[in-house]
Amino acid sequence: MSTFIKKYSKWLAPIGSFAAFLLLWQVASLNVSADFLPSPLMVWDELVRLSQTPVGGTSLLGHVGYSLRRVMIAFILAVAFGLPLGLLMGWNRVCDKIVSPIFELLRPIPPIAWIPIAILWLGVAEGSKIFICFVGAFVIMVLNSYTGMRYVDPLLIDAARSFGANPRQQFFNVAVPACLPSIFAGVQNALSMAWMCVLAAEMVGAREGVGFIIIQGMDLNKSSMILVGMILIGIVGSLLAALLRGAERALCPWRSEMV
């Protein structure tokens, strides 16, 4: 018996905790109305139903696709602009002194607060939604790259200098690779943030997307639909995170050794 437990202990814990969670949920839902908290079974039925009939003219997978598209575009833009900016700010004191004050001012403003101005500038079409996700991801990307760069071990830079590396070589050959773990952390956090913002973005008059499913559920008074939407957000979000972690392990083999 104990060898069985040892062998499968890696799986027993998560399965066990999920089972316990579902059980608790089921028990809780029995004591309240279906509108307040639908049971796990009801949510499952709803999921099956939604996957068979289109919502607002789009299939369930289609909705996920729309959300993903917005997030990916926002994410790629955030990395493309945020990463170089963060690295440069971290590397170059002058750049830091110029950009930091403005950045520090904009940073505490949550992506949601950008919604009205996004609508004003970009209308209610795709642009504003992507913009919201972009803002959240961008800030995170800059912060992580900046911190990563500031904390590069000066000894490594000195070592590079002692071999005659010029500042460009020091930056690209040493500083940036040294930051890679922080950069990856930034990328992962930025993607998570973009995905989290997509709901808020889609509340701005969307007709497709996972956020839309949640809004529909709210309008139609179907809690099970709301929950399906939320669960979808959770599942896709964790899959994206797992993908990125896999990419990090593949691209930073020396780091896996150290961990």
């Binding site: 002692s162 071999f163 930073c252």
Partner: peptide, 19 residues
């Protein structure tokens, strides 16, 4: 006038590039 390839250095904390 600064560091140069005529001098090679070995550091106490190794300073090897981990990647």
């Amino acid at each position: 006038t600064g560091p140069g390839p005529d001098r090679g250095m070995v550091f106490q904390r190794y300073a090897l590039f981990p990647w």
